[in-house]
Amino acid sequence: MSIEKSATRRRRRVPEEARREAIASARALLLSGGPDAVTLSAVAGEIGVTHANLIHHFGSAAGLQSALMGSMVSDLTQALDEAIARLKTDEGAPLELVNAVFDAFDTGGAGRLAAWITLSGDLSHLEPVRAAVQNLVEAIADKMGAQDAQAREGVGAAVMFIALSAFGEALIGPPLRDMLNLPDGAGRRVVASLLPRFLIPKASSTSASAT
C-alpha cells in the first residue's frame, strides 16, 4: 500500500462521511464477493477505521446491512424520479422505468442483499424498503392520475411485478436466459411490454364509457 493511500485512509472523518464511506465499501464488497464478504471487519479494513468505530456508527453488522439496503433503495427511488415523470407521455418510458429497477437489483446489488436478508429469516432488516416502495407507488399513481382504490391497486401490482421480475433476473437471469436461448434484456422487454396493462386500466375504462 502506498504512503499516500495510507495517509488518506488514516485521515479523520466527520461521522456522516465515515458512514457514507462504510456503506459504499459494503456495497462494493457485496457486489464483488457476495453477502459473506460484507462484514464489519472487512469494511473497517477497506476504509481504514477500527471495528469499534463501525460499531459506534451502525450499532452492529445488522445495522450496517440495514443502512446499506436503505442506501440502495434511496438510489433506486432517485433513479426512478425522471422515469416516473415520463410514464404518461413517452412511449419508451415503461422500458426506462423497468431498466431503472432492474439495474438497481442487478448492478446496484439490491437483489443480492434482499436475498441475503430474506434467507437470514430476520425480515426486520427490510423495513427501510417499506417507505420507499409506498412512495414509489404513490408517485406513479399521482403521475398516472390514479385516484380511486382500484387504480391504485393496479399501480401497486405493477410495482410488485417489476420488483419480483427484477429480483429473479438479478439472481438467476443469465443462466435461465442461456437455457432458453434468449438474448440479454429479454426479461426487461417482456416486463416493459406488460407494464401498461397494470397502469392504464382506468384510462381504458373511461374511454370506453365515453364512447
Rank of each mutant, 00 (worst) to 15 (best):
V98I: 10
T118E: 08
A93E: 03
A85Y: 04
A131D: 13
L87F: 09
A79E: 11
I117Y: 02
A115S: 14
T77I: 12
F102E: 04
L97A: 14
G108N: 00
L113W: 04
L113G: 01
K88Q: 15
L113S: 00
A114T: 12
L95T: 06
V129A: 12
A132S: 12
A83M: 07
R86F: 04
L76M: 13
A115E: 14
L80F: 05
R112M: 15
L123R: 14
G108W: 00
A85E: 11
L97R: 05
G111T: 06
A83V: 11
K88M: 14
T118K: 06
G108R: 01
L80I: 08
L76R: 07
G109Q: 00
G111N: 03
L87G: 04
T89W: 04
T107K: 10
E127H: 13
T118Q: 07
V98P: 00
I117M: 11
L95R: 02
A132V: 13
V98G: 03
M72K: 03
A100K: 00
A93D: 04
R86W: 03
D122P: 05
S74K: 09
L80Q: 08
A110L: 12
A93F: 06
L80C: 14
V101F: 08
A104I: 02
W116R: 02
G92M: 05
R86H: 12
A114D: 05
E96H: 14
D106T: 12
